[in-house]
Design a protein around this nucleic acid. Structure first.
Lengths: 206, 206, 206, 206
DNA sequence: CATGAATGAGGTTTCATTCAT
DNA sequence: GATGAATGAAACCTCATTCAT
């Protein structure tokens, strides 16, 4: 039976220090991603992940205290993949260019593995995971960009950031779902929505 | 023994003919909605639904061949609730007003039971359900409105409708998730995004 | 949810690699046999088998995807038990002696666990199982014996083998059902029927 | 739930005296036969029978106190159908002719609805039913025939009758299973087995 | 450390039977 | 009588997790 967990159910169990361990963890994460993509949330289970990783179920539990920890780690992995590109947006000379760079990064990430990205987004709202997941990189970067002087001033920057993030995610998600491949066209539509939103929501100077 | 299922796992099993049965079905649907809201997708199971409906598990299976049929029926119920308001948008004199009416309806629906709406949106993308669910009312109404002459002409109306729908859904979803109650403000932001998108994506006259 | 079964409902799920597992599988098979004997087909269910095997229901499903797989495996087990004796019949110098040996083996097998043998015979005709079960050893051995020159020549050897098998099975079954213990007497009656049949059905030389 | 039955679970509940009731009972029995033929023992259930009979499940329970009573009644129906032909065998001038007539009747009955006959045979051995079912007509008729002077004298007539019955049943069953249609040929084989058996088991005069 | 066998709570689903209408 | 909605025990089966080897 599922006894009460003896360790935090979400923190990774051990830092893989040896290279072999690191490879196992990586294999498990990639397997988790693939199972999620192939079988969806309802087909996602620890046995399937271990099997696909070519690792015993016991080993999975060596590195992850449970199913949710696996998902959380996957979220972090994808978050970090994204960070490399997203941070770069802050170096842009203008806010508009930064925003474009951010959109490009988000679109690229989302379209690369659309199903995975979508399902992780869904999981992200589960209370159990939401608590653990630290506030997204995107959110913080986006807020900074929105404060650049060349962009229309927003009354509530955090709110605007939330709205824009939701829009980027949903537009790329549906594009991904429908198999769109024309990235520039998708970016144009996202720009339209975002800059349209920012312009029309511009707050008069105080 | 594991017999192959004798009915489709999605089509309702029998339509209630007596009023007592109709009440049972209604109770089951409402219970399904409440379980979804309270416990999320992972807490959603047939036992919980039957219990909350105050009905035996056997009765549930008289009318629904399983979980997914329940969700599908719930989608249809909400879809019909929405239809009353949405169809009304076509009566508006201008496209802009129609669009506003549509947004208002969507926002009202989504904010009334935000969690339910959100989870049904999520489920809607599951391949198993997506196949069954007939194309949404919203989609058809929206396409008609977008063809009104006062709105910026779009090159691909179906694509625009899809994008707008995604945006409305995501903006109201996140608003709902964050407990926003200021409906007019939310509507303003949605208008900003949608009209901004339409303006900037306007296609030159042929 | 009712997912379509991911494995054939008849093929064993995994072959036990560790000796512990092998013991479990053996215990399950023997338990299946005993449940069948004690409670008949209508009392035969996976829970009862697992309980009697002293094994959790989960373990049963590790090795057998369901009831039918268990029955099929049991058939094979009994088939193999029989094979040791039956093959031996081919070593006999004459067809008559071979036939007698075969009958003796069949009778011994059937009377050892008469109920089990009978119920497996019944199950063997279920379409679902019949497809899987490879043509019996007995059938092939019997056909070879019937071609020996000292036995009356049959027009259709396969048909004759089928008839004889049916007769042996039914005579031993009823004997078993009625608690007969006098093996030699039973064998005499079977000989009478079989040699009587063969003599009277002898086909004239071509 | 299945409460302890308040009436004997096997005796018909009411004698259908009105013609409408008689029609309902007949429809239920024929439906039971068809369900058995189509879906086998594991697909046989009261709801399916009622549905196929075009009768409510409640009505089924008006006339039959339970599933087993239905099966028992079906056995009796088939038994009576058989009796008409079988009794006739006693009118034959010689035992041999009587035996032939009996075989012919048995073969005709079994081949007419082979699956039904087979499954009823199987059910007949269930302890619950066996207790209720009065000793077969065939058995008594056969014993009388075996005592005719022109047939080889048997030491234990009851035993011989049992053996012969088993043989007839199994030979016709397998023939039926394999779709044989050549009735005369099947009868020849059965004669061979039966007269062969009787000849060889003839007991010396006391 | 790795393995994979074992566990069993808890989910899904059926179906014999009852009973209110 | 006839109907069919309702019931719930009991079957089926999965999968997160533990633990002996």
């Amino acid at each position: 039976m599922a006894r009460p967990p003896q360790t935090s159910p979400l923190k990774p169990r051990k830092q893989p220090s040896q290279p072999r361990a690191e490879k196992t963890v990586a294999a498990l994460l990639e397997a988790a991603a693939q199972v999620l993509e192939r079988d969806g949330l309802e087909g996602f289970n620890t046995n399937a992940v271990a099997r696909r990783a070519g690792v015993s179920i016991g080993s999975l539990y060596q590195y992850f205290p449970g199913k949710d920890a696996l998902i959380l780690a996957l979220m972090r992995r994808e978050g970090e993949r994204f960070y490399a590109e997203a941070a770069h947006a802050l170096d842009m000379p203008t806010g508009a260019e930064g925003l474009r760079a951010l959109i490009a990064a988000a679109v690229r990430q989302q379209l690369e593995r659309p199903t995975l990205a979508r399902l992780l987004d869904v999981e992200e709202t589960r209370p159990a995971l939401r608590a653990e997941k630290e506030g997204g990189v995107l959110e913080r970067v986006l807020q900074q960009i929105l404060e650049r002087p060349d962009l229309p001033r927003q009354l509530d920057v955090a709110l605007a950031a939330r709205d824009l993030m939701a829009m980027v995610a949903s537009l790329t998600d549906t594009a991904g779902e429908h198999g769109e491949l024309d990235v520039p066209h998708l970016e144009r539509r996202i720009h339209a929505a975002m800059f349209g939103y920012l312009d029309r929501m511009e707050s008069p100077l105080p």
